[in-house]
Design a protein around this nucleic acid. Structure first.
Length: 895
RNA sequence: GGGAGCUUAGCUCAGUUGGUUUAGAGCAUCUGCCUUACAAGCAGAGGGUCACAGGUUCGACUCCUGUAGCUCCCACCA
């Protein structure tokens, strides 16, 4: 069969993925083997594959494929997340494009559209993962709103409510005015912005009669960044120790524009050196003001509606002026400008300063979050932790090991400062909160209306109550935190065979940006519902950035089209490119040139295959004059292969995947292709010893097997092309490592060094590769060269090799260790560059010798250092001395 | 404001209990090669006073302190 010039990924990839699927290699059922379980972080159901997913899932596939080859029962569960806010927003937008507003639909109608949308576009991302080669157990594909999953979320809510961990309360929450829903603290991102600090004068209500226009002297100046909330002010607060305002304690001031009379109160909370030291208190629109308001019993006056627009509803009893009518329905940003203009007209704007502050924005919609007092459902996190202390200790004790370890601190800090989790969302797409209310607002928590009625009867002695279910649904993460349990039906069908076998899962691979959203909460859920940790290792990936270090974003247009890249370079090359430099926990600077490197690696492998196929038909069992060469080469490569395999095992255990890949890459490219294959390569059109050929094929197979988790397609393709196979690499069990001989490895290193040095000398003397040389070796131990002399001769094009006891005239000489190599050529040799090299080397060696002997002549070093260290230093000194001697002799020979 | 981390070759990064020949890799650069596996390649080479300043030590890229710069996380100074 004729092989193409270069490797063509497209066909091979489609072919092998289908083959693996047909064979059912990715499917897992519980058996007697040790399980290796990974649950995929479920992407947003409407998402499309991007670099982050690619990194994430490539890592998971590598781990899973390795586990499979190690004989474990590998189970990798795919699925998607209903992502309530994001998906609902997409559905709303889709409806808007069709001219339908959400408000015109009933809940059921809306959900029908949403499900239609999900069925149509949902899970595209899962199909895309197949292109990447992900060996997922597709029979287990889950969705966080599957029927059983939904039931389990409701069940968990009811259970936690019963335990008193879930409560309902009126709290200051983060309100997303675009999505029109509450958010948890984790969904809020604080951003630095340039804004203004407005200094506004509030007139003091003075008992004195004002007889002239001196009134303006009697004011207090307040600094605020949010003048638009001024109509909700219910006090001014100063620090009790602030001497500037002592005379105002207990007095009243007037809110500009509406002249509401508000008290001037004192509280230590106010800092003296910010602004004017006087704070306007607006309990309805600021978290701190809310607390101050509670403490001082202030009135709460809400002036913004749920879209962040002005509403005068709560000002009704204040004789709303025309101004207020004018403000109605105006957006908060616009309102700020108008109010400042209007106050300026009254001459009560003292000044406006530039101000750098932070603003809270919604993680989902990006809009500025509005603090809003609202009735929501909360999870008492402190109680959860105190009842499940393992939630914290599992991580600090490394029972759950984080990679990188430093994220432990982040985790514990969050746990130590945990706040209650607002779990209700004013959305329809999600699990509806199972709370039932009667007309008076009494409620019970129950799975069904019938149960709720019974409970009303029992709890309130109300029979056949007219009940309405809570309109809100639950935070998406309130379902995702059950993911490692419920994908095995651990909540909906507790203690089934699957959950008992697969849980706890083995490794979680996820982004460090969701350590609080998801990882921490899964640990909690694990201990609450299974009394056990959910996973043993967590591998955190960083963020994928472009090569300039910028985040990938639609606006910048710097996020590459992944499927396009797969088409262009092949999935293996993409996997290689993204893995070659991505240490755990660090951001990855994505550069397309690493994909080129991956593609080139494909070709390197492909060409090695072509070479072997050429040899296949030229085997012979006779010619044995070169057996020394082959024996050493084979012996050495076998050792080297096992050395790298051992290293890779160690690196994989530490989750240092890119290091492992680098080692494999170098083993294939340098050791196998550049050294080994050249050493055993027969002369032009010469036959190859059958035994050598078979050994070489065996090595190649072992190499592609080692590579397979990283680059599954080409490795499988080569495995089948290099010889007829009945089995598949995908499920082939790893060959155990054989013991290594360090002597052979050392001799191999010496051999490489000799060849490189001689080639360098040839280069420097402008000897063409075809120009043969005579090589003379001056050494005290010729026996160390016997096994490798033929390889040396072949690799440096030496027509002859012999051993001498003294220098050889008219030659180039190079020194390696204690030995000298004389290169004799028919061509006239120019020793000038070589001499310069030798002098440079000499200088270096002398400097080195000096530092070593200085160390050795230091009494305290000799006294304190470990004996083996001293011995090593002695050896270094001896070597350096020998080498200097060799170089000096060589230089003499040149003159 | 608090915390964590980073700073090693032009770029991206390794460097695992302080001593392995006065620092390694990949990419990029330079030189020479169209050598029938591979020019998407082969053979070589150059390039770093390990951010800076102190300290501990016989010995520091490695440990400690300080300084500078960068990054991330957390946080209610309006």
């Amino acid at each position: 069969m004729e092989l193409s010039k270069n490797y063509i990924p497209t066909e091979a990839e489609a072919k092998w993925y289908q083959h693996w699927m047909d064979k059912g290699y990715f499917f897992s059922t519980p058996d007697e083997r040790e399980p290796y379980t990974i649950v995929m972080p479920p992407p947003n159901v409407t998402g499309v594959l991007h670099m982050g997913h690619c990194l994430n899932n490539t890592i998971q596939d590598i781990l899973i494929r390795r586990a499979r080859a190690e004989g474990k029962n590998a189970c990798w569960v795919p699925g998607t997340d209903h992502a309530s806010i994001a998906t609902e927003a997409k559905v709303v937008q889709m409806l808007r494009e069709r001219g339908i507003t959400k408000s015109s639909l009933s809940r059921d109608e809306f959900l029908k559209y949403a499900w239609e949308w999900k069925e149509k576009y949902g899970g595209i991302i899962l199909q895309q993962l197949k292109k990447l080669g992900c060996s997922l157990d597709w029979n287990r594909t889950s969705f966080t709103m599957d029927e059983d999953y939904y039931t389990s979320v409701i069940k968990v809510f009811i259970e936690l409510h019963k335990k008193g961990v879930i409560y309902r309360g009126k709290r200051m929450i983060n309100w997303d005015v675009k999505a029109k829903t509450a958010l948890s603290d984790e969904e809020v991102i604080h951003k630095e912005i340039q804004s203004k600090l407005y200094y506004i004068n509030y007139l003091i209500d003075d008992d004195r009669e004002h007889e002239d226009s001196m009134a303006m002297a009697d004011h207090i100046t307040v600094a605020t960044v949010r003048p638009e909330t001024i109509l909700g002010d219910s006090a001014i607060c100063v620090n009790p120790n602030d001497k500037r305002y002592t005379h105002l304690h207990g007095k009243f001031a007037f809110v500009p524009l509406i002249n509401r009379r508000i008290p001037i109160i004192t509280d230590e909370y106010v800092t003296l050196d910010f602004g004017t030291g006087a704070l306007k208190v607006t309990p309805a629109h600021d978290k701190n003001d809310d607390e101050l308001g509670r403490k001082h019993n202030l009135k709460v006056i809400n002036t913004l509606d749920n879209e962040g627009k002005f509403t005068a509803v709560e000002l009704a009893d204040e004789n709303p002026s025309e101004l207020i009518v004018k403000y109605n329905g105006i957006d908060r940003d616009e309102l700020r400008k108008i109010i400042i203009e209007d106050i300026a007209v009254l001459n009560q704007v003292e000044k406006i300063e530039d101000y750098n502050g932070t603003v809270a924005t919604s993680e989902r919609t990006g809009v500025v979050v509005e603090p809003l007092l609202s009735l929501q459902w909360f999870l008492d996190m402190k109680k959860i932790i105190s009842e499940n202390p393992e939630t914290v200790s599992a991580v600090t004790s490394d029972a759950i090991t984080f990679h990188p370890l430093k994220l432990k601190n982040t985790y514990s800090y969050w746990m130590d400062n945990i706040k209650d989790w607002c779990i209700s969302r004013q959305l329809w797409w999600g699990q509806r909160i199972p709370a039932w209310y009667d007309a008076e607002g009494k409620y019970v928590v129950a799975a069904t209306e019938a149960e709720a009625k019974e409970m009303f009867n029992a709890q309130y002695s109300i029979s056949n109550a007219q009940l309405k279910q809570d309109e809100d649904c639950l935070d998406t993460w309130f379902s995702s935190w059950l993911w490692p349990i419920e994908v095995f039906k651990g909540i909906s069908k507790p203690d089934n065979k699957e959950i008992d076998y697969y849980y706890p899962t083995t490794t979680l691979v996820t982004g460090q940006d969701i350590i609080f959203f998801w990882v921490a909460r899964m640990v909690m859920a694990g201990y609450i519902f299974k009394k056990e940790l959910p996973f043993k290792d967590v591998y955190f990936t960083g963020m994928v950035r472009d090569k300039q270090g910028r985040k990938m974003s639609k606006q910048l247009g710097n996020s590459p089209d992944l499927l396009g890249l797969i088409d262009q370079y092949g999935a293996d090359a993409v996997r290689f490119g993204i893995m070659i430099s991505s240490p755990a926990g660090n951001d990855l600077l994505f550069d397309e040139s690493s994909l080129e490197q991956g593609r080139n690696f494909n070709n390197k492998l492909w060409n090695a295959l072509k070479l072997l196929k050429m040899w296949e038909g030229r085997q012979s069992a006779t010619g044995n004059e070169q057996l020394t060469i082959e024996n050493f080469a084979i012996n050495w490569f076998e050792n080297r292969l096992n050395q790298v395999k051992t290293e890779v095992d160690g690196l994989m255990k530490q989750f240092r995947l890119s290091e492992a890949l680098k080692n494999i890459y170098s083993l294939v490219w340098d050791d196998f292709c550049s050294w080994y294959l050249e050493w055993v390569k027969p002369g032009f059109e010469q036959p190859i010893e059958k035994a050598v050929y078979e050994k070489t094929v065996g090595f190649f197979e072992e190499l592609v097997q080692l590579l397979h988790p990283f680059m599954p397609f080409i490795s499988e393709e080569i495995y089948h092309l290099v010889g007829d196979k009945k089995d598949d690499l995908c499920v082939k069990l790893t060959i155990a490592n054989r013991p290594m001989t360090t002597e052979i490895l050392a001799q191999g290193e010496l051999l490489k060094q000799v060849i490189s040095t001689l080639r360098d000398a040839r280069n420097k003397n402008q000897l063409k590769p075809k120009e043969a040389i005579q090589l003379h070796i001056q050494t005290a131990s010729p026996q160390s060269y016997i096994a490798i002399e033929n390889i040396v001769a072949k690799q440096v094009n030496a027509a002859s090799v012999n051993y001498v006891n003294e220098s050889v005239a008219n030659t180039i000489v190079v020194a390696i260790e204690k030995d000298k190599f004389y290169i004799e050529s028919e061509k006239q040799l120019d020793s000038a560059t070589l001499k310069a090299d030798l002098l440079k080397d000499l200088e270096h060696q002398k400097g080195f010798l000096q530092s070593v002997s200085k160390k050795l002549s230091n009494e305290r070093f000799v006294q304190n250092a470990k004996p083996e260290v001293i011995a090593l230093e002695r050896k270094k000194m001896e070597d350096a001395e020998n080498r200097i001697k060799t170089i000096e002799e060589s230089l003499k020979g040149l003159n």
